[in-house]
Simulated scan of single mutants.
Amino acid sequence: MNADPTLGSAPGWPLVLYFHHVNALVDHYTALTPDGFRRALETVLSEVGPALDPAGIGPGFRPPDHPGVLLTFDDGYRDNLEIAAPLLAEFGVKVLLFCVTGELDAADRLSDAERAALPPRRSFLTWAEADRFAALGHVLSAHTVGHPKLPELGHREAAEEIATSLDRIRARTGEPARTFAYPYGLIPERPAVLAGVLAFGTVKSPPTSWAHRPLHIRRTYLPADEGERWARLAIGWREQWFGSQ
């Protein structure tokens, strides 16, 4: 396992980045301030390549013949809509949003006052807000029901966590969920993801082609507290795309 973010994707395959928050109040290695996120988008789009449309991501995906990047967000936090979405719109970028469906269900049950009192790390989208996010051209997908560490569950329980979240997304959007992200990037030894789904890990996954290992797709990140490295990281990720050339 190589958890170093400098290792991007397999040669010829898109770079995939993951974020959690765009929020100045959150201290997390994948949480950026609004200004930081704007600079991240500028850096990646200029140094790596254009953003992929998440609507085209699914089984059978064929990569473009040039470097590009797929942006993803995990969990489904409220600031993804309120803060990240306007910045994404500035650049015309769409993202895959991997939702912890049980948290969105729980957000629906809270009053406005209860939601206003939550810290950003506990403030999730409601389903109506997730619909608004999707209406902007972003794609909702699944990240389990309760965000467990799947390898610590039995196979049946892990498979149920995954399948139930995929079904919840399909019921809400009217479209099959074609992608899934493992909580914590932890992948069970025994496959628990349904056929017809691409599954994304984190920096804990190796950089292999999506065609070869469609359930172990590597994602990496821009370290929130190391902004001086971002340009070098992005240049390196682009160079890695040419590794097979």
Rank of each mutant, 00 (worst) to 15 (best):
P191A: 08
V48R: 02
S244P: 02
A85Q: 13
V100Y: 02
L136Q: 14
G56A: 06
G227Q: 15
V48M: 07
S165P: 08
D74R: 08
D225W: 13
R213T: 12
V193P: 00
L153Q: 13
V193M: 03
F98Q: 01
H66N: 07
L70N: 00
D4S: 01
P151W: 13
P176G: 11
A134D: 13
V26Y: 03
Y221T: 03
L70V: 10
A195V: 05
R62T: 15
E129H: 04
F124K: 00
P34H: 06
A234T: 08
L71K: 01
H21I: 01
L125W: 04
P206I: 11
T126F: 03
L97A: 14
A107L: 02
T220G: 00
E90H: 08
A142H: 01
D112Y: 06
A181I: 12
Y77A: 06
L125T: 09
A134N: 09
A116T: 06
E114G: 07
P151T: 11
A195W: 05
T43Y: 11
F242S: 13
L45M: 10
L118Y: 05
L186A: 15
N2F: 09
F37Y: 03
D74A: 12
E90V: 07
T220P: 00
R168A: 15
S141V: 12
S205T: 06
R178N: 04
G68D: 08
P119W: 11
A158P: 08
H20E: 07
E129P: 03
L198E: 07
